[in-house]
Design a binder for these strands. Structure first.
Lengths: 158, 158
DNA sequence: GTTCTATTGATAATGATTATCAATATCTAA
DNA sequence: TTAGATATTGATAATCATTATCAATAGAAC
């Protein structure tokens, strides 16, 4: 199932994000290469939750010479550089979403059609923080995915 | 990583749960068999979040004749019968937890040692319900996993 | 007991991810 | 600018969890 965000928006290649990525590479003693550059460019242009396979297919259209492994490795690097975030909807495929200049959010997904809504609620975050503190933990991350039926799918099934 | 619940407790085989499972089987025109019975017995005795492989290993100790596929299939049935629930911590392995006579809860997991705390908060649930309604959805399920460092692991790393 | 067919267990297939490695491209220092 | 050291690449193999296959087996109804 393809999860499509309704909050998606298109913008030009994010130069700031690219600079961050390049800095990240050099801070690790890694090299800036043409294949990495191309994969990053394509990723930054797509405002969707995409799997490695998805991104590979898109990259492959314009850059036949770039292999699956490079796409997978570059997504991992983007994650480590803080430019994207892994999202797991529990269907066996990890997806990635943009993180740079994107607010933290949770997900409301329709199990009928895959429609995906990004949700955010301050109270929700606050209560979580309190619960974490209560147990003496230091929070690293959290993942809230709500699954349900969207209005359209409710009608379709009725 | 093995996630160990600190809320785990041991009790005898839950006869009520077994009755529910048997009714579930016959309602589907499925048969009650010795292998299924054994797998269910073992599962009901273990109050942990376990993977298929985990349960297979445990079952295998006392029932060498039972195969992996049967364990996997029986866990699926237990899920469908409402006796267990899939839990996904995003590490590539699906785990199952008890659901019969167990309140709904979310998870607070330590990324250092795998310690797992089951958390529940009414407000958290209420806010989620409101968010879902606001978007016209009907909620089917949700999954909230918080990841962080437990007090012990904080000290160990300091 | 006989018959029908659901179930089993071994194993193959699948699908996503990760590892391997020889060939290649990048970076750095002279 | 070039040469050398080595990070990176792309193809593919390996891995891991899960799911599908199928002949043999064993419930259930008569």
């Amino acid at each position: 199932m393809i999860f499509i965000s309704i909050k998606g928006c298109t913008r030009g290649i994010n130069m700031e994000a690219k600079v961050i990525f390049d800095r990240f590479l050099s801070s690790r003693g890694m090299r800036r290469t043409a294949p990495r550059d191309k994969v990053v460019n394509v990723f930054l242009k797509i405002e969707k939750h995409i799997s490695t396979q998805d991104l590979y297919s898109i990259v492959h259209r314009t850059h036949k010479e770039i292999g699956y492994a490079t796409v997978a490795r570059t997504l991992k690097l983007l994650d480590e550089a803080g430019l994207c975030r892994k999202v797991d909807f529990g269907d066996g495929t990890v997806r990635y979403e943009h993180k740079y200049k994107h607010e933290h959010h949770d997900h409301l997904a329709c199990t009928g059609c895959g429609k995906l809504i990004e949700i955010y609620n301050k109270k929700l975050e606050k209560i979580q923080d309190e619960l974490v503190k209560k147990h003496g933990f230091i929070q690293k991350s959290h993942r809230l995915n709500i699954f349900g039926l969207c209005p359209k799918c409710q009608k379709r099934k009725a």
